[in-house]
């Protein structure tokens, strides 16, 4: 019992605090850059980066918890009405919420971000063996690919009826390009800051330990 309590209150058990701080800073940064780009009607969409460190460098349960927290924070930052988020889950929500909330307008996100971030977290766990865990360059490439796929899913879900229009693809490509540039420019700093913060908080990074052992 004493051991369990000690484990619960150990330094490493509070990994979610730096995780929240990191996710919040990243989302805030993306929002601020989007604000600066607003005269050109451009926005930054960059939740993909939040999956990389938890999936590659953290133990499974902790990584999953961090991705859940990051996904929720991302969802809260979106100005999306509730029913729109339901349709973003590829119409699954239409069946799930048929007898209640679908008919009401409640501005609360149902979890597009959290759902897809968890799915890609699991996918990246399976691909860990093929990724060099000590190479931030490879993390960045993973982040770029992952972010583009999440954005593609997002765009498909939200603009299904506009896929045949030139304006949609123009906007999609412009936003994807700006987001990718943002990830490349800020990603280096972000990964360095994330790993440093976790180390500073005494949090076990599995990937790093495996690299050291090798």
């Amino acid at each position: 019992m004493g051991e369990a309590i000690r484990k619960f209150f150990s330094v490493g058990a509070f990994y979610w605090i730096p995780a929240c701080v990191i996710a919040y800073i990243w989302i805030f940064l993306a929002g601020t850059v989007s604000d600066a780009l607003s005269p050109w009607n451009l926005a930054i969409f960059a939740p993909g980066l939040l999956v990389i460190v938890p999936s590659l460098l953290m133990p499974f349960p902790r990584g999953l918890a961090v991705v859940l927290v990051s996904g929720f924070l991302f969802d809260f930052s979106l100005p999306i009405p509730f029913e729109k988020m339901d349709s973003a889950l590829f119409a699954v929500g239409e069946k799930l919420f048929l007898f209640g909330e679908m008919t009401t307008v409640v501005p609360a996100p149902v979890g597009f971000g959290v759902t897809w971030l968890v799915i890609f977290f699991l996918a990246l766990r399976f691909l860990r063996a093929y990724i060099d865990l000590s190479s931030p360059k490879q993390w960045l490439v993973c982040a770029l690919i992952l972010n583009f796929v999440v954005f593609l899913l997002w765009a498909f879900a939200f603009s299904w009826n506009e896929l045949g229009t030139f304006a949609f693809w123009g906007g999609f490509l412009a936003t994807a390009a700006v987001s990718s540039v943002f990830i490349v420019l800020a990603g280096w700093w972000f990964f360095d800051a994330v790993v440093s913060l976790y180390r500073l908080c005494g949090i076990d990074l599995v990937g790093e330990r495996e690299v050291d052992e090798e």
């Binding site: 989007s34 607003s38 603009s159």
Partner: peptide, 11 residues
């Protein structure tokens, strides 16, 4: 305080 202008929302 902040502008949220994109393909999907204008707030």
């Amino acid at each position: 305080v902040q502008r949220r202008l994109s393909m999907w929302w204008q707030q």
